[in-house]
């Protein structure tokens, strides 16, 4: 009746088998792509392989890297947060407005982080308690948070932040092009990576994304997990807002408009499935760097910054559509006329 090839007790695969699987996996492929892009760019684009290039590359992608960490967990858990860039903007505006009114910068930043947590909690509440789809909720809070940001400052910009703080943000480790803030990212990435890949909570993230009902039957508190993921997303977005304010020395209501798309694109390019349950944090970090490297290489090669948006869009579609099309073509070739019943639109 069954077609199990092997009749022995299944064992853990050997280290070698596991290594092979990693090397044939998606993370390895995207890393190879990153290496290839860097190599080709280094050889063909003048000034690409300089410390300055890397310095600016890291500074530019830093906010995306920060927000991509919680976004990875959210998307793996089959949720999405489109309000991140608006929260970044709101956080930036709060830092600016409070600082302008004489608050110490550190306190203003702290308030921004708290507001980030509250905003994330609002998303989490609407999704887990009210039971709304996260897509709809975060489109709403995207408008709301951005609206608050724009409402508070209007079209004004707050500038004149203390140079000490600004210098700290753009400082780099002596002799390298690596900004100091990257150390913060490494710490955070390790924290998120460990949670996702080596804790019970991480296992639940995957389980919830693949099948929330079965995860609940296995004793997982899926609602609570989802709620805290949204809070984490709000806090990290607010942190990115603080960074953005100091990095560009300007707090404006329209800071980072549209950045949520870059983050989602990076997460998907990094191998996370939009359907949830699949993907890994290293892949996402590489995905962000890949997009960043591509952008800076193109910029150095005098390609206009606008082409880069097209590249991002096409890359996004290609990485997401490609596997599905390949699988489908393969399936069609194997069994013509057989169509799985799954695959609702949307």
């Amino acid at each position: 009746m069954t077609v199990d090839q092997v009749r022995t007790v299944p064992a853990a695969p050997s280290t070698r088998t596991r290594l092979t699987r990693v090397l044939l996996g998606r993370d390895a492929a995207i890393t190879a792509l990153l290496v290839a892009v860097v190599l080709v760019a280094s050889l063909t684009v003048d000034n690409f392989s300089t410390a300055t290039t890397w310095y600016f590359l890291f500074l530019d992608v830093f906010p995306i890297l920060l927000i991509a960490l919680p976004m990875t967990l959210l998307v793996i858990a089959a949720q999405i947060d489109l309000s991140v860039a608006s929260m970044l903007g709101l956080s930036s505006v709060l830092v600016g407005a409070l600082y302008e009114n004489g608050w110490p910068l550190a306190v203003a930043a702290l308030v921004a982080l708290v507001v980030g947590a509250v905003g994330g909690a609002l998303n989490g509440f609407l999704v887990t308690v009210v039971g709304l789809p996260s897509l709809a909720v975060t489109i709403g809070t995207l408008a709301l948070f951005r609206g608050l940001a724009v409402g508070i400052l209007g079209t004004r910009a707050v500038t004149g932040f203390p140079s000490g703080a600004q210098d700290l943000v753009s400082a780099h480790f002596a002799g390298t092009g690596i900004p100091v803030v990257m150390a913060l990212f490494v710490v955070l990435a390790l924290a998120f990576g460990v949670v996702l890949h080596a804790t019970p909570t991480g296992r639940l993230v995957y389980a919830a994304g693949l099948n929330a009902e079965a995860a609940r039957f296995a004793g997982g508190r899926v609602g609570r997990l989802t709620f805290w993921l949204f809070v984490a997303s709000g806090v990290m977005s607010a942190l990115a807002g603080v960074y953005w304010t100091l990095r560009y020395g300007s707090a404006r209501g329209d800071n980072a408009v549209g950045l949520e798309l870059s983050v989602v694109a990076a997460v998907l390019v990094g191998g996370v499935s939009i359907f949830g349950g699949r993907g890994a944090l290293p892949g996402v970090v590489v995905g962000v760097l890949l997009i960043g490297a591509l952008r800076s290489a193109l910029r150095l090669a005098d390609v206009s910054s606008d082409v880069i948006n097209v590249v991002t869009g096409v890359l996004l579609i290609a990485t997401v559509v490609g596997p599905g099309l390949v699988a489908r073509a393969r399936g069609a070739a194997r069994r013509p006329g057989t169509r799985p019943s799954a695959g609702a639109p949307g």
Partner: peptide, 12 residues
């Protein structure tokens, strides 16, 4: 898997 004699290629 051994106790219940699950038949599979391996645990992955």
């Amino acid at each position: 898997a051994a106790t219940l004699q699950v038949k599979a290629r391996d645990l992955d």
